[in-house]
Nucleic acid binder design. Sequence first.
DNA 1: CCAAAAGTGTTAGTGATACACCCATGT
DNA 2: ACATGGGTGTATCACTAACACTTTTGG
Lengths: 214, 214
Amino acid sequence: MDPLKREKYFATTDAVVFTVLSGELKILLIKRKYPPFQGKFALPGGFVLPNENLEEGVARELEEETSVKNIFLEQIGAYGDVKRDPRGRVITTAFLALINSDKVKLHASTDAELAKWHDINDLPELAFDHDKIIADGLKKLRHDIENTAVAFQIMPEKFTLTDLQTTYEAILGEKLDKRNFRKKMREDKVLKELSETRMLGAHRPARLFSFKKK
Amino acid sequence: MDPLKREKYFATTDAVVFTVLSGELKILLIKRKYPPFQGKFALPGGFVLPNENLEEGVARELEEETSVKNIFLEQIGAYGDVKRDPRGRVITTAFLALINSDKVKLHASTDAELAKWHDINDLPELAFDHDKIIADGLKKLRHDIENTAVAFQIMPEKFTLTDLQTTYEAILGEKLDKRNFRKKMREDKVLKELSETRMLGAHRPARLFSFKKK
DNA sequence: CCAAAAGTGTTAGTGATACACCCATGT
DNA sequence: ACATGGGTGTATCACTAACACTTTTGG
């Protein structure tokens, strides 16, 4: 029971970073330049430093990658199968991250692995067990959006109800009824109706909304 | 990025083991005989061995403690705050475990730490961050029992509808309506009505049910 | 015939779903 | 005046919640 006699393992974090871009649900992936899984795509993440909590670790990695601070994070779970990483025993803790793509400027990481948005319906081959982690993250996102107000994390400061509905549809992967959607949003009482409107073409201008800050 | 240059940490598993005993929701705790947190209570668990997955690790520990095989397990999440364990950096993965108390024979573990059932509403002082882990586990259990068929894991092979309702009430911490409960169970189509009945006193005998195997 | 737990249906309310037309604007 | 996306209400259905009496047994 003396921990000093016990094995130690590597600890990493991985982030399943979603955004909605032009009506499509996107996930952030990096292309690996070195083995293992050279050339394959992987979730952004990295090793946990001794002086940081798990969530702090993934936040740091994400800020390096996206230059966005205070990213919304929720834990998905731990993945620690014996052979999930050929380099040795690595236990990773995965996080769901939501981001407004307007704020992101994608950076090259320390290994110059380029981060890019990928359509969730058209994923490349993935390294490690990241396909499983993504599937779990997507399930969690879909659950959360129907039960909490996480959509806020993806929207810009001001948006129209059509924008918001498009985000919901991208995440859920299905069309929603316009009137029912707007009714529910009204009932939820999380939106603040602004006096401003936005005009995009030769149409009726759309009312802008923002989220009520808790 | 070379993992060989990275720090390694201890990896443990902890189990939030629930059962229902005489109408009360109980959790399995061990009393710690040695520091840190000597004399305090803690979740059963232990270090992850190099050749086992996380779930295999917690299953092994639980089998040692309870002599029950094939315990129902679902991951709660990872807990890895820097200072959660004074002995060093320890990242634990917590699991929700459900058990039919009839099958359990509580054993002394290797350190002769005695495992005992504790009423969920009357918990002693807990070691580490185990109070937080228990709170998360209870939340998950309550969510699961309302959305899936996990109650099966706690019930014996044959049981009455009143038994089953008592289990639900113990887990949810509230009384349920008898007629509505029975109606919902009928609609869920997971119960098999047996021809047998059970008689306990000078009352009408109660019909026995079992769960339909998948 | 009494005590005690088993068993059984109906009603009202609430939330979800389906559905079609008018509005405001720029060109 | 037309094309385009913005905006609105009602009716039905399904699910949830509230509620009280009869049945079967042993003593």
